[in-house]
Design a protein around this nucleic acid. Structure first.
Length: 491
RNA sequence: GGCGCGGUACCCAAGUGGUAAGGGAGAGGUCUGCAAAACCUUUAUGCGUCGGUUCGAUUCCGACCCGCGCCUCCA
C-alpha cells in the first residue's frame, strides 16, 4: 500500500515515492540535549514513530536518521554554569532522552548522528559554499550563508523575502553580516567556549549546517523525506534547503513532513503558564507511559492537539478496553471453525491500513479496531466465536499494535525507572502516593492473596474474599472473575 | 501588520455535497454471591454566527466572531 502524506513543500497530499532498490531515506530532526524532553517534544518523536511503523507495516524498507544536537548556545551556557565539560553535560541528557523514548516505545532510528562527531562534514560543506561565493567569513571569523545566493529561499515556508527589510525585527548589531538575514554557518570561538580547530578557523558549527551535513552523509545529497516539528519549517528547514541546494544544485529532501504543536489544557505550553510537563513529571503523577503514548499519537500529526489530563484518563480507559478484550479472547475456549467475524477482522484491518495510508490519520485508524472489539465481545458473550475467528482477530490486533504499540502492559517498568530517577534527582516528594502503594506489594504476594481469595470463595466465605479484594484494591490491584478463571492487574 | 490552521455532542476527536466514525464520561437495563469486565438501550434534525450557490451544505463561496501557530535558532 502507498502512503499518501502531506508535503509542506508542495502544499499537497502526495504519495511518498520510492527510489527503486533503495530503502526510503528519512531524516528527522532530533533533540538538542540540554534538558529533559517535554511532552511537546515527544509528540513529534511519537508521530515520526507512527510514520516509520506505518512504512514498515506497508513493507517499505527504511533508513531513518535522527540527529542529536550536542553543541549549541544553551548547552554551552548550562554546562558552563555547572562547570562541566559539554560532553559530560550532554551525555546526561542524551541518556535521559533515550530512556524516555524507551518508556514511550519509540523505535530507534537506523542511524543516530551527533553533531560533534560530524564537524568534518560540516566544514567541507561550508568550504563548498564558500568556493562558489555563497558563504563568507566575517571579521570575527564566523561564517555566514549569503541569502542572496539562493533566490528560491522561502519556498518551503512560503515566505516572500522581498517584503522583509533588514533591521526591521532583526538583531543587526551582533556580527558583521552583509545582510541581516544571512544566517550563521560557523560561529567563531569565543574565549572559554568549546571549539574545534578546522580548515575554516577555530569555532563551532551553526545549528542548520549540522542537519544538512549529516543528512547528506547518511542519505546522500538528495533524499526522500525530511521531518520535524512545525516550528522548524522556518527558519531551520528553510536554511537547510538553502545551504544544501546551493552547495549541491540538487533537490535536498523531496518530501517534508511537519508535526503540529500541541496545546496543554487549551493553552500553549510554557513554564510561566504552569502547564509545562516533561514525560517524567507525568509518570511521577501516576499516568502510564502507554496512556501518554496513546493520547499523543491518537490525534493526527497534522492537527494541533489539545493535551489534557482528562485525555490521559480517557486514553488509559481505552487501552484497558483493548487489553481486557485481548486477554479475554486469548483465554476463551473455542471450537474449531470460523464465522463472519473472520471476515469482519479482515475488513477492520483493511480500514485500519487505509486510514494510515491517508496521511497517517491515526484517529480514523482507531475506529475500525474498536468496532471490531465490540463485535467480537458481543459474539463472545453469545459464545459464537470460533478458533478461526480468533486467529484472524489476533492478527488484526497485531497489525494495529505494530503501529500503536499499547497492547502489552510494560508500564510498570517505565514508572519504576521514573521513581528511581526521582529519588536520585531529589524529587522524591513528587511521586504520587498511589504509585508508592502499588510498589508496596510484589507479584508473588498478590498471587498468594488471589489464591487465598479463590479458596475462600469456593468455601462460600464471601466476607473473607471481599476483604482480600478490598485490601488489594487499596494497593491498586484489580481482580476480575470470569468463566475462564481469575485475572488480576495493577491499575 | 504578513502568512497559515482550526471552531463537530458533557469531554476528546474523525469525516462527508445527500443527510453525523471512534474513544471517554453520564443514565437505564442484562449478566454476577458482591464487584470488575462485557453486552444492550440512551445522550448533536445538529457540525461558531449570518448570508450566498445548489434539488439538497456540517461539507463549496463570502462576511463576521472566537481560538491557535509561524514571522531568526521553542518539537
Amino acid at each position: 500500500m502507498n502512503l499518501n502524506l502531506y508535503n509542506t513543500l508542495s502544499g499537497k497530499v502526495e504519495p511518498l515515492t520510492l527510489e527503486a532498490g533503495k530503502p526510503l531515506g528519512i531524516y528527522a530532526c532530533g533533540p538538542t540535549v540540554y534538558d529533559y524532553g517535554h511532552i511537546g517534544n515527544f509528540r513529534t518523536f511519537l508521530q515520526v514513530d507512527v510514520l516509520r511503523r506505518t512504512l514498515k507495516l506497508f513493507g517499505v524498507p527504511l533508513r531513518h536518521v535522527m540527529n542529536i544536537t550536542d553543541v549549541d548556545d544553551k548547552i554551552i551556557r548550562n554546562a558552563t554554569a555547572l562547570n562541566l565539560p559539554i560532553g559530560e553535560y550532554t551525555a546526561r541528557f542524551e541518556k535521559a532522552f533515550f530512556e524516555d523514548l524507551d518508556a514511550l516505545h519509540v523505535q530507534r532510528p537506523e542511524v543516530i548522528a551527533r553533531a560533534t562527531e560530524h564537524i568534518d562534514q560540516m566544514v567541507k560543506l561550508i568550504e563548498r559554499l564558500a568556493a562558489q561565493g555563497a558563504a563568507y567569513q566575517a571579521e570575527d571569523g564566523s561564517w555566514y550563508f549569503r541569502l542572496a545566493a539562493f533566490p528560491a529561499y522561502g519556498k518551503l515556508s512560503k515566505k516572500d523575502l522581498s517584503g522583509m527589510v533588514d533591521g526591521a525585527r532583526v538583531d543587526v548589531d551582533e556580527y558583521e553580516k552583509d545582510s541581516a538575514r544571512d544566517f550563521a554557518l560557523w560561529k567563531a570561538a569565543k574565549p572559554g567556549e568549546t571549539s574545534w580547530q578546522t580548515a575554516i578557523g577555530r569555532g563551532r558549527p551553526g545549528w542548520h549546517i549540522e542537519c544538512s551535513a549529516m543528512a547528506m552523509e547518511y542519505l546522500g545529497e538528495s533524499f526522500d523525506l525530511h521531518a520535524g516539528g512545525e516550528d522548524l519549517t522556518f527558519p531551520h528547514h528553510e536554511n537547510e534547503i538553502a545551504q544544501s541546494e546551493c552547495a549541491t544544485h540538487k533537490t535536498f529532501a523531496r518530501h517534508w513532513m511537519h508535526v503540529r504543536f500541541l496545546l496543554v489544557e487549551g493553552r500553549k505550553m510554557s513554564k510561566s503558564e504552569g502547564n509545562f510537563f516533561t514525560l517524567r513529571d507525568l509518570l511521577l503523577k501516576g499516568y502510564k507511559a502507554s496512556a501518554i503514548r496513546f493520547a499523543l499519537v491518537s490525534v493526527p500529526y497534522g492537527n494541533q492537539m489539545n493535551f489534557t489530563f482528562d485525555g490521559l484518563v480517557e486514553a488509559t480507559a481505552a487501552i484497558e478496553r483493548l487489553r481486557n478484550f485481548h486477554a479475554r479472547l486469548v483465554a476463551a475456549k473455542l471450537e474449531p471453525g470460523a464465522t463472519a467475524l473472520k471476515a469482519a477482522a479482515g475488513h477492520a484491518e483493511t480500514a485500519f491500513r487505509a486510514a494510515l495510508a491517508n496521511d497517517l490519520n491515526t484517529a480514523e485508524a482507531r475506529a475500525p479496531i474498536f468496532e471490531l472489539v465490540r463485535q467480537a465481545n458481543t459474539a463472545l458473550d453469545k459464545g459464537e466465536v470460533l478458533a478461526g475467528d480468533r486467529d484472524a482477530i489476533l492478527e488484526t490486533l497485531l497489525f494495529f499494535d505494530s503501529v500503536f504499540d499499547v497492547m502489552e502492559d510494560r508500564d510498570a517498568e517505565a514508572t519504576r525507572h521514573a521513581i528511581e530517577w526521582a529519588h536520585s534527582a531529589g524529587r522524591a516528594d513528587e511521586i504520587a502516593p498511589a504509585l508508592l502503594a502499588g510498589l508496596s506489594i510484589s507479584d508473588e504476594e498478590v498471587e498468594k492473596l488471589v489464591a487465598e481469595r479463590t479458596a475462600a470463595k469456593k468455601m462460600r466465605n464471601f466476607a473473607r474474599a471481599d476483604q482480600i479484594r478490598i485490601e488489594l484494591a487499596e494497593k491498586g490491584i484489580l481482580i476480575e472473575d470470569s468463566k475462564d478463571g481469575v485475572r488480576w492487574k495493577r491499575k
